[in-house]
């Protein structure tokens, strides 16, 4: 099959009808999921904002060291994982075997991010923080907002690491093509994008 025929099949689909968005179905579905998930995080962040404004005894518990410093390292790790994911997508689409290394690096960085996050969580829980308790005596809604927003994001990170692992394994065995890597990459960049709002709004605005 010629390159032109392949392109036509990709754009028009199997039945010859033109795809209005010019992308594969799985990619369009991933975009729709991302928009819906973006609205979910948006709802949480707006709720956090209103709860914060409505609580006169809001607590700002985060010291530069270790919490903000840890969050900066986490941000660096997650941003770098987006770069390695881009490397994986490019290598896979070019058919280079280095795609596996790029994707493995992405999983490693994602796992590192989750580990740093959990270490911070356990440290806070050890100090007496919980979704319904504030050991500093201020509004208990801080714990609810913090654990709720970062917990949902952490769930996305862990799910993403598992998804990348499964897709990489199947790609390596030849059962999935590069387009699946690209679609998984969209999800991973979205997880990174959400953190770009969580870091300043949840961490920096609560720095002492």
């Amino acid at each position: 099959m010629s390159h032109a025929e392949l392109t036509m099949q990709h754009v028009h689909g199997a039945v010859g009808e033109e795809r209005p968005y010019g992308v594969s179905t799985k990619k369009l579905v991933m975009w729709l999921f991302i928009i819906a998930d973006g609205a979910t995080f948006g709802a949480l962040l707006f709720a956090y904002g209103y709860v914060r404004v409505g609580s006169p005894d809001w607590t700002k518990p985060f010291a530069f060291s270790p919490t903000i410093l840890n969050a900066i390292v986490m941000t660096f790790v997650l941003l770098t994982s987006s770069l390695t994911m881009l490397g994986g997508v490019r290598a896979a689409s070019a058919g280079r075997p280095s795609a596996i290394r790029w994707l493995s690096a992405t999983m490693l960085l994602g796992t590192g991010f989750a580990a740093l996050h959990l270490r911070e969580w356990f440290s806070m829980i050890h100090e007496g923080w919980s979704p319904s308790h504030n050991p500093l005596g201020g509004s208990p809604l801080f714990g609810a907002a913090f654990f709720g927003i970062t917990g949902l994001h952490l769930l996305h990170v862990v799910s993403g690491v598992i998804a990348i692992g499964v897709v990489t394994l199947l790609y390596r065995r030849g059962r999935l093509d590069a387009s699946y890597i690209e679609t998984t990459g969209l999800y991973w960049h979205f997880v990174d994008l959400v953190w770009m709002f969580v870091f300043p709004l949840v961490y920096l605005l609560n720095a002492r």
Partner: peptide, 30 residues
Amino acid sequence: MSSAGSSSSPGMRFYTVLWAGLLGIVIVEV
């Protein structure tokens, strides 16, 4: 339109510059 294997997407050097820029924005935020 871009897809896996599209030649229209930029190279890793461009992405690395963007990555460095995003890290710079994080530092500005702090």
